[in-house]
């Protein structure tokens, strides 16, 4: 979650990151995309590893695990991220 402020910071049109590094909006935007990819990868890994830990190592049944409120919220959060990612890919694909 610590990455989120960086993600926001790099999304701005007049980004302070751009002033510090002396780079243009387009370069900052490509940085923004890389931070985004990193965040998607981190959260997807987090979800998978938590599932593996609970179900396989601790022997919690899948039905009990999926019934937990925080797990459900977590899964929906990750699907939001994945949807953002997929939409971006879709726009890129359509544009090219």
């Amino acid at each position: 979650m610590g990455n989120i402020p960086i993600l926001f910071l790099s999304a701005f049109k007049n980004s302070p990151l751009g002033y510090i590094a002396g780079i243009s909006y387009e370069k900052v935007n490509s940085f923004h995309r890389w931070v985004g990819r990193l965040i998607v990868a981190t959260f997807v890994t987090h979800g998978i590893l938590m599932g593996v830990l609970m179900i396989i190592q601790q022997g919690t049944p899948f039905s009990v695990w999926i019934a937990r409120k925080d797990v459900q919220w977590g899964i929906s959060a990750v699907s939001c991220l994945l949807l953002i990612f997929l939409l971006y890919r879709f726009v890129c694909w359509f544009f090219n």
């Binding site: 919220w73 977590g74 929906s76 959060a77 939001c80 953002i84 971006y88």
Partner: peptide, 15 residues
């Protein structure tokens, strides 16, 4: 992009 980012922040908070 804007809507999904907001949705993500809310769901992450509940998580």
């Amino acid at each position: 992009h804007i809507l999904l980012t907001m949705a993500f922040l809310f769901t992450a908070y509940y998580h």
